[in-house]
């Protein structure tokens, strides 16, 4: 079973890192195969960037994402560019504050997670990606929460463990909430 995840936004949002964490969680902390690829422009801040993950129980042949099953977008440009690439029936998680212009998409499951605003509440906007990962975990269950937390911890600077785990939990709970709401 091959699962394709695309995370997109702009440089500085921790997009690349978020994809890495997902892939690492699946590949090192769960018994799956995973590969992460990325694409970014010459700008380290502000330019468009995307991080893609393929997760599979089998050996992965083609490592790139073509039609994602899951799409996480954190900028208007990323939304405009990639929303249409999402598979029919796929899952779209977006930060509504960053994406004022949205289309109606009936064949997709859409979850709105105001990660940037929530990160601000935690005092660090750079933590928005981890909040998104929390939401991604509870909404899609692509990897176990414990595996994801382990992967987060091995990807962050020392001294920021609590901040990151808090962010993850916050996102996780928020994801759970929006999932329940949509199922209701």
């Amino acid at each position: 079973m091959r699962l394709e995840v695309r995370i997109a936004g702009f440089g500085g949002q921790g997009i690349i890192r978020a994809g890495l964490i997902v892939a690492m969680a699946a590949s090192l902390y769960e018994d799956k195969n995973a590969v992460q690829t990325q694409s970014y422009g010459p700008e380290s801040r502000g330019g468009s960037c995307r991080s893609e993950v393929v997760i599979s129980d089998d050996e992965i042949d083609f490592p790139k994402v073509t039609d994602p099953d899951i799409l996480v977008v954190m900028s208007q440009a990323a939304y405009t560019r990639y929303a249409g690439t999402l598979k029919s029936g796929g899952t779209l998680i977006l930060d509504p504050d960053m994406i004022p212009q949205q289309q109606t998409m009936h064949d997709k499951r859409i979850y709105k997670v105001p990660a940037t605003k929530m990160a601000e509440e935690l005092g660090k906007t750079i933590i928005a990606n981890v909040i998104m990962l929390g939401a991604l975990t509870s909404i899609t269950r692509i990897v176990d929460a414990e595996a994801m937390k382990k992967a987060i911890l091995s990807n962050i600077p020392k001294g920021t463990e609590k901040l990151n785990l808090d962010a993850f939990e916050k996102g996780y709970e928020y994801g759970k909430k929006v999932l329940e709401e949509s199922n209701a």
Partner: peptide, 9 residues
């Protein structure tokens, strides 16, 4: 560069 920047186990 894809293999160079690609992450795997």
């Amino acid at each position: 560069a894809i293999v160079g920047h690609m992450w795997e186990r």
